[in-house]
Amino acid sequence: MSLQQATDGDLEKIEIALLLEGIFRRYGYDFRNYSYASVRRRIWHRIHLEGLNNVSSLQERVLHQPEAFGRLLGDMVIPVTEMFRDPAMFRAFREDVVPLLRQLPNLRIWHAGCSTGEEVHAVAIILHEEGLLDKTRIYATDINESALQQAKDGIIPIERMKQYTKNYHAAGGIQSFSDYYDSDHGVVILKPYLRNNVVFARHNLVTDRSFNEFHVILCRNVMIYFNSQLRDQVHRLFYESLANEGFLVVGDKESIAFTPKADKYDTWNEQYRLYRKMR
């Protein structure tokens, strides 16, 4: 590597650091401890779409034009989700966790990083089928207000339903999946009663604190975008937010191993990343 190449790489890191610092101070969104490779890729994607040449030009635009920041934010928090994604995990949740939840007088569940709400509705369906939905309060939070609005509306493109139906049955669904939605003009509207006990709210895992005590926290495939410092910080938040013997569910590419609270959990199902907080 030449001295010029090394210098260019260092300069880009400085530019990105300044951009992320500016976003935090101007808009309150903190991406400073996200994975550098992921952040860099998304920033350059936006630079090309904006017709710009470098990170500093993007910084000037997003700090002076809130609508440009909105476009960048959409790139930084791309919603990736589907109903009953990883069906075997949802089957394990139904078979291994739900029987214990049934013993509680009421339930509080937190979907952290709920995106457009597909997994929120999936869990609501399981709880409905298991007779627990009426005694459950689900808190569905995300950093992206646009995604939260989609979750509140419960509207899904109809072309996704074939895959979602397949996922539902693989996850142990016991009814006809079509019972849970109405179709109209090329979209699917999930039944409103699935959201009756859901509170949708903006919450930033990076900067916000615990706001309740929960019996289950689901945060699947969100922390893969965090560096180790931020991941440890979020795991402390989840530990503080879980009731004794509460369950933590993370994504299939994630684990609590080597996190500050790893020794405070029993591994309930390692294959599907289900963990239970010890007393």
Rank of each mutant, 00 (worst) to 15 (best):
C219P: 15
K166H: 12
N196L: 08
Q150D: 10
S176M: 09
S241F: 00
P192G: 03
A171H: 03
N197G: 10
N167C: 00
I156W: 01
R236I: 06
N204I: 02
Q149M: 03
V249W: 11
V222S: 05
T207Y: 07
Q229S: 08
Q229E: 08
R209N: 13
L148T: 07
E159C: 04
S241D: 08
V206N: 01
Y225A: 01
H235C: 08
D208L: 01
I143D: 00
S183L: 11
I174H: 08
C219S: 14
H185C: 12
G173A: 02
V249A: 07
D182Y: 11
N227M: 05
A147D: 13
Y239L: 06
Q150G: 10
I217Y: 02
T207H: 09
F200G: 09
E245P: 10
Q233Y: 15
E145S: 15
R160W: 09
V206C: 11
F238G: 02
E159T: 08
N167P: 08
V199T: 15
L194A: 00
G172S: 05
D232F: 01
N227I: 02
G251Q: 02
S176T: 11
L242C: 05
Q229L: 12
I143E: 02
S178P: 10
E213V: 13
L205Y: 03
Y181C: 00
I156N: 00
L230P: 10
I156D: 00
